[in-house]
Design a protein around this nucleic acid. Structure first.
Lengths: 207, 207, 207, 207
DNA sequence: GATGAATGAGCGTTCATTCAT
DNA sequence: AATGAATGAACGCTCATTCAT
């Protein structure tokens, strides 16, 4: 059981979930996309939900690992915030799949609470833990920026983080959707990036 | 076929979709919640997807109607922007269900393109049209604000609208999720509202 | 949901389980034999195992009810023992299906302990309780016979009951199998009945 | 293909069938218990059913071989009957697995008729033949006992044999089940053996 | 001989949808 | 108008069996 095949399946599944949505994606779809049989998929994953959770977990782990590096390298809260947001944007743009991973993640997170299956509890906890780390990374940077009197102190870090992440997600989601629907969204990647820079400068930074 | 029963079904369905998610909600669930039989539901709607589309359409129509009024009443782009965003926040907060309607809407919109069923084509087009109106309302206000030199001209209206709407959605979604997961999100409704005001003032308005 | 349909399904299932064995009987087989669709079966039963347990429970309840009547009517331990064994034989012979119910019951009883499904716990407990009643009915009669010095005291009631029931089952099972395999078993129903009478007279009764 | 490995597999399979039942035992379970791969199992057996039939055949052959010896050594029908029943009890008690072999055998015998697979026809015939030998051994002893006026002539040999074997099986099955369910059955091995002696003395022997 | 990755047919189960009443 | 019993297609998942190595 090579580990590379696990990755192939995860990538195929992300593609399929992205196209059809978790609910309408069938195991047969995923297996076909991965070039394997349905049975083999079950050698690598417990069940369909496990595939979804594994995608989410991998995304969060990759993002957190990238952040870990950046935050260590960058000097000062502003540089760190840029670095971390850059990671986020990078992951959304590396491939169209990643953006859908985020969509899938948002769709799945509220349901995480309800997962009953004993087999998946460990993975559930891992995801929640990684998610906490991700949020805490943002919040810590913002808190530090406020302490150093670089960032606006009027708003609490959690609110700022939500605004930033929500804006990024929506902007990229709009781009993504426009490619699907063949309807112009009225802006491009460069506009999106630029607006995030504006947002930091005007909304996060002091005065 | 009284029209009031149609409404009862739509409200019940919204509640059920909110609780279980569209995928896991069954027709039986909806019928039960509406106090009718499954068979009768099919006198009012073509099928399950039709129920979902009807909810979305009603939401967009209500929002657009409310905006129509506001925009007529309010004087100046800033007042209008506040009014329109107020409408949006109101709909999200009127009840927890509305937020889920938005989630469902976001989940459903990309799939609208793929709807093949002949029966639902009209409704599909209506939704897309209403969605266009909603976006155009925002964009028109922002364009006007830029023309009048009240709003920042560095960014295009579509980008600004996405940032605003993305921020609002994320903020409220965070609140919603925190009630489900029993984990504090670190801010409350007031914080969320205040941050949107900040966002307008610092990000949208000139200087 | 008429109760008569439940019975039709149970009878069809007994027939199918008898023919193919629980493991190789499919829901489709049972539904077809009952003249219904697979889906409808699930309106009446939780799942396949529930069908099996329901058959067993009904058999035990019917037998216990019949015993209840007999034991009240009959005078003296010997008459009661005859009555109760007569019931057992009657149930085995009423139709070929009943004998297979016994086989299925014997096959299933050891596995009852392992049933984990929450939904089926109540039924599991009912079966165990009815089984206890059945055994206790035999044992009480034998104990009383020993007290009244009519039955042999050398062996304990549980052993006697096992010998009697084991003998009856084997004798009838042999008859049943011979009809299936088209091989003469070397005795007929009358022989079987007569040998049980012998067994009581010589093995159970005192001298 | 050493023959010893065949034996190892058969013993492992018996253990697994005993624990889980034929239906719920998987080839993977058996292979694991035997310490080999699933693929290798298929070098020794045609398929899963072949493993079951091989266990049954070996059991019957072993029992018949043991009986052959006994019957030759023992003098007179009563001694022979004791010897043959002793063999049966021995095999049931040698280990708990043997009893399950008997259960499996009883469960499988009726289905032997229906085996269609060409590959297994020879084995099927062997089993039926060995089973006939087993029954005939009993019946011959009883017939001889009746001829010599030692055994009761009122009942035919086949009936007597069924009573004896049914009683033994039930008694031992009860013991076995009580260990699984942790419920006292009300008697022990000694009681069971004693009751068989009684049965011979009072039920089989003349007056 | 030995492995275990890979297959895919087949089963239990669900649920949107229909239709006789 | 209203019901809900009935249908059956479709999906998740298992596991006996094969075969390249």
């Amino acid at each position: 059981m090579e580990d590379s095949k696990r990755l192939i399946i995860l990538e195929a599944a992300t593609r399929v979930f992205a196209e059809k949505g978790y609910q309408y994606a069938t195991i047969a779809d995923i297996a076909k996309a991965a070039g394997i049989s349905t049975g083999l998929l079950y050698s690598y994953f417990e069940n369909k939900l496990d595939v979804l959770l594994s995608i989410i977990l991998k995304f969060l782990q990759t993002l957190n690992a990238a952040n870990q590096e950046c935050v260590g390298a960058a000097r000062g809260p502003l540089a760190r915030l840029h670095a971390v947001l850059h990671n986020f944007e990078q992951m959304l743009f590396r491939d169209k799949e990643s953006l859908h991973t985020v969509k899938v993640l948002n769709e799945a997170l509220p349901h995480l609470v309800m997962i009953k299956e004993e087999k998946l509890q460990a993975k559930r906890r891992d995801i929640i833990a990684e998610n906490k780390i991700l949020l805490e990374t943002f919040d810590a940077i913002i808190r530090q920026g406020q302490l150093e009197d670089i960032f606006d102190k009027d708003l609490n870090p959690a609110v700022m983080r939500q605004v930033l992440c929500g804006a990024i997600e929506r902007l990229h989601y709009g781009l993504f959707y426009s490619t699907y629907s063949d309807q112009s969204i009225g802006y491009d990647e460069k506009d999106a990036h630029q607006s995030i820079m504006h947002l930091i400068e005007k909304f996060i930074c002091k005065k």
